Lab assay of single mutants.
Amino acid sequence: TRVETATETAWISLVTALHLVLGLSAVLGLLLLRWQFPAHYRRLRHALW
């Protein structure tokens, strides 16, 4: 049971790290898009909202 718990903890930390990385890359990508294509971003936002 001790090994299982350790594996579970490792998986949880791995998944958390993955989610953090994905979230950060998504935010960075959005910022980059907004910085590179302001007109396109505004049009996209206008279409979405």
Rank of each mutant, 00 (worst) to 15 (best):
T1S: 12
T1G: 07
R2C: 10
V3M: 07
V3L: 11
V3A: 05
V3C: 04
E4I: 12
E4D: 10
T5K: 00
T5H: 00
T5I: 05
T5R: 00
A6C: 08
A6R: 11
A6H: 08
A6T: 13
T7I: 11
T7L: 11
E8P: 09
E8D: 09
T9W: 10
T9C: 06
T9K: 11
T9I: 14
A10M: 07
A10K: 13
W11L: 04
W11G: 02
W11R: 01
W11D: 03
W11E: 01
I12G: 03
S13G: 14
L14H: 04
L14M: 13
L14V: 11
V15P: 01
V15G: 03
V15C: 08
V15M: 06
V15E: 00
V15Q: 06
T16D: 01
A17V: 12
A17F: 09
L18S: 01
H19Q: 01
H19G: 02
H19N: 00
L20K: 02
V21P: 02
L22R: 01
L22G: 08
G23P: 01
G23S: 10
L24G: 05
L24D: 01
L24K: 04
L24V: 10
S25G: 04
V27A: 10
V27T: 12
V27I: 14
L28S: 04
G29E: 00
G29T: 15
G29Y: 00
G29L: 15
L30H: 06
L30N: 03
L31H: 07
L31W: 14
L31V: 10
L32D: 04
L32V: 14
L32F: 06
L32K: 04
L33M: 10
L33K: 04
R34A: 07
R34E: 02
R34C: 07
W35Q: 11
W35R: 15
W35V: 14
W35G: 15
W35P: 12
Q36S: 15
Q36F: 08
Q36P: 05
Q36Y: 15
Q36W: 14
Q36H: 15
F37G: 02
F37V: 07
F37S: 01
P38W: 06
P38S: 12
A39L: 15
A39P: 06
H40V: 08
H40R: 10
Y41D: 03
Y41W: 14
Y41H: 08
R42E: 13
R42V: 09
R42Q: 13
R43N: 08
R43W: 09
R43H: 08
R43V: 09
R43S: 10
L44I: 14
L44P: 03
L44D: 04
L44T: 05
L44S: 03
R45W: 02
R45G: 05
H46K: 05
H46S: 09
H46N: 09
A47E: 04
A47C: 09
A47W: 07
A47Y: 08
L48N: 05
L48I: 15
W49Y: 06
W49L: 06
W49R: 03
